[in-house]
Amino acid sequence: MPKSITSASTNSEIEGLRDLLENEEVRYVSKGYGLISASLLTFSFFFILPELLFPYYSTLPYTDKFIMFAWGPIIIHTAMVLVSNLMMFGIYKSNLGFFERYKITSDPWPWQSNYEEFKEKFWTTMKTLLINDLIIMPLSAIIPALFDTAKLETDPLYYPSSFELIWSIIFFMIVEDTVFYWIHRLLHTRFFYKNIHKKHHEYNITISIAAEYAHPIEFIFGNLIPTSVGPLLLGGRCHVVTWYLWMIIRILETTDGHCGYEFSWSPFRLLPLSGSANYHNFHHAHNIGNFASFFTYWDTIFSTNKHYWRYLAKQEKEA
């Protein structure tokens, strides 16, 4: 390899790392007091919520693996998709300055710029979500449960501690982010983008219902599989409650990433080297780079977020 090419590649990697570290500092400072709220939400999720759930979990038919591995995920997934989108609908509808100050772009929402076009897109989106959430997702849970392929623990005697939940879910995040990154990059190759992934990119300004608006094949390989790999790898070392809580986190994270707001209190932004709603919105708006979900290190290693750093630098100069 010519020396000039090697040098350029090295300089690009160094610049990417520098941009990443500078963004980390700006990201935390810009959150201000929102970091306190984010910290309280995180603490409550891992240390208070599991304790509150334990008495109810003990009453479940935990020895019935079909109920625990099929109906459990179906109910949790459906409920969280519904709750998270209703919550965001309330925020969009309220149009309150308290929320609007966190809006990522100055562009109008799709329903403001062209209501009739959005109305048509909304019903198309609802049909897709119904197929994905009420047919594809249930089948993906029921079929493995029927063949008893899930080996997770269900006994209340092994109910996970808060620290067990933390290390397990951090592991799930790292695994999911890695699998998602490479599948997402594959979906952006010419054939897969044209025939599958283009559907998700019909939203160039992200809103919450766009999170799971995808071709059924993408929903399986780009959403369900990356989320499931971590728990499957842990197998019997993972309690089903950990899996349930992980599903809640994943749905809330993708909703947060697509919602169009950069909320200062988002607990997902406490993660070192994490992305942001703005990070993923750039991917939709420019249809390039920023392929990862939870973190930014894969994008940085392979320079697939270089266009994003240049975009931020240009914005800063123009400000």
Rank of each mutant, 00 (worst) to 15 (best):
Y244K: 05
I196G: 00
E25L: 12
Y213V: 04
T154R: 03
D299E: 06
P108M: 11
Y261T: 02
S162I: 13
A319D: 13
I220K: 05
H188L: 05
M126Q: 14
V26A: 15
I220T: 07
T10H: 06
I5H: 08
P55E: 09
F294L: 10
L20P: 01
L252Q: 09
T59C: 12
I217M: 12
N305M: 11
M247G: 09
K198M: 12
V240R: 01
L17W: 10
K317S: 15
G235T: 10
I5S: 09
E100R: 15
A70Y: 04
I170D: 09
E202H: 13
P226N: 05
T128H: 06
G236W: 00
F192S: 04
E116C: 00
L187W: 00
M126S: 14
E176S: 05
T124A: 12
E253A: 04
T6C: 13
L245F: 06
A141E: 00
I205G: 04
E120R: 14
E100G: 10
G72V: 01
L312G: 07
F45K: 00
I48P: 03
N114I: 12
R185A: 06
Y244I: 04
L152T: 04
L53M: 13
E202D: 11
E153M: 03
L130K: 08
H188M: 05
K306D: 11
S84E: 06
S106C: 11
T124Y: 13
D299A: 07
L40E: 03
S161A: 13
S274N: 07
Y115M: 10
F294W: 12
E116Q: 14
L271V: 14
E316G: 06
M126T: 13
H239M: 00
I75G: 06
E15Y: 10
G16T: 03
E117W: 01
H184P: 01
N290W: 01
A285W: 01
A145S: 11
F171P: 02
P160I: 01
Y181A: 08
L273G: 07
N305Q: 10
F99C: 11
T189D: 09
L49I: 14
Y244H: 02
G275Y: 05
W182C: 04
F263D: 02
K93V: 13
F294E: 08
D256M: 09
I225S: 05
E218W: 06
T59Y: 11
H284M: 05
I225H: 02
T124N: 15
Y279M: 05
F294Y: 14
